[in-house]
Design a protein around this nucleic acid. Structure first.
Lengths: 198, 198
DNA sequence: GGCGAAGTGGTACGGGTGTACCGATTTTAC
DNA sequence: GTAAAATCGGTACACCCGTACCACTTCGCC
């Protein structure tokens, strides 16, 4: 029978349903960006999407699932933006991108990233974020994605970025460190003991 | 006057009070380390310290203050541990330290670090953490703390560390990247040739 | 047309939260 | 000693949470 135990089977299958679901997800992403993690409650999401409370439980099996999908969406959007920006302006100007970015949004992203350390589902998404960023750096450096220099450079840049985000030190400092990181990485154009390639 | 509006004036002034307060703080730190952020509730802290619920509001003006003090304590302890370990085993072996560290505790620390981006009080503590770590790296590199190489190296290492913590990639990868980071940094103008023990 | 499934939304439940309250007890000051 | 101040601790309040429930409407399809 299943009159309405309907936790959530598959994609909504009806047009309006799909729109509603997407709308909830968008609201969740926005809340995540603004207030981080704790701000994404069923009630807040539903209210923001101008939908009744029950819609959230109808389209998402649980808060965790909602959060995971929102995280994935946020990561994907972030990767697109970053790739676009870097290929347009180049690596050394990255500091300006960071400076211009929406701080609350970035904080929310990192918040979820750390939280991914305690949740396997989120961990997978976190990995995709890192891999995506490494890929971007490798592409713009014109080296294979497996080149450890690309990976290290991304790592350094991401930490610079997080540090700037959290501690809000003068931008000039981040800029100088970014330049230094690029110098060190590119100077070392040599063979770079790449042990594994595959 | 003030029969008992007593939000919390100053240090407890009575011996037992000071002990109780410290005990609460210790419990908060432990909870922070284990379950992160959300686990630090008045009730959980009081229960863990074997004190009545009201003790938490008596000794701390608010949950935020309790959290801030716990964060400060955690950071201070972490700095001590790290300095100790590095001066004893050297930078290249850092990967082993990370591998051996208590994962939940580190995650809690980073969780609070990111959260510091939204709270000025915590931000100050976050800065002290970074400064402390930079200082440690600078000391062991035998360069002034203001040397951008020290700062950059710390930044790279911290990101490597966070990435490892969250994404749980094979340790060998982190180790390789750490070595590369050290190479790049020291090559540039390094006064020392660190012995390599692979 | 009809009928079962999908979707909808108002409401309720059980639980956890931060914090205030306030009588009882201990400590300190004189 | 005694009174005032500090401390204690049990309890209560108001709020917010995730989620379940269930009567209702709308849709897809034969």
């Amino acid at each position: 029978m299943t009159p309405h135990p309907a936790p959530r089977p598959e994609p909504p299958a009806q047009e309006r349903g799909r729109r509603r679901r997407a709308s909830l997800l968008k609201a969740a992403v926005a809340l995540l960006a603004e207030g981080g993690f704790a701000a994404v409650t069923h009630r807040a999401v539903a209210h923001r999407a101008r939908l009744p409370l029950a819609a959230t439980t109808y389209y998402f099996a649980s808060r965790d699932q909602l959060l995971a999908e929102a995280f994935a969406e946020l990561v994907e959007a972030e990767l697109d933006t970053t790739r676009d920006w870097i290929t347009r302006h180049g690596l050394p100007a990255l500091a300006d991108h960071v400076a211009a970015a929406d701080r609350a949004r970035q904080l929310g992203l990192w918040e979820l990233y750390v939280h991914a350390g305690r949740d396997p589902v989120l961990q997978q998404i976190a990995r995709r974020w890192t891999d995506g960023c490494v890929r971007i750096v490798a592409d713009v450096l014109d080296v294979p994605a497996s080149d450890p220099r690309a990976r290290l450079l991304y790592t350094a840049v991401s930490a610079l970025w997080l540090e700037h985000l959290v501690e809000q030190r003068p931008l000039s400092q981040a800029r100088a460190l970014l330049t230094l990181a690029l110098d060190l990485t590119l100077d070392h154009a040599g063979p770079t003991t790449a042990e594994e390639t595959s």
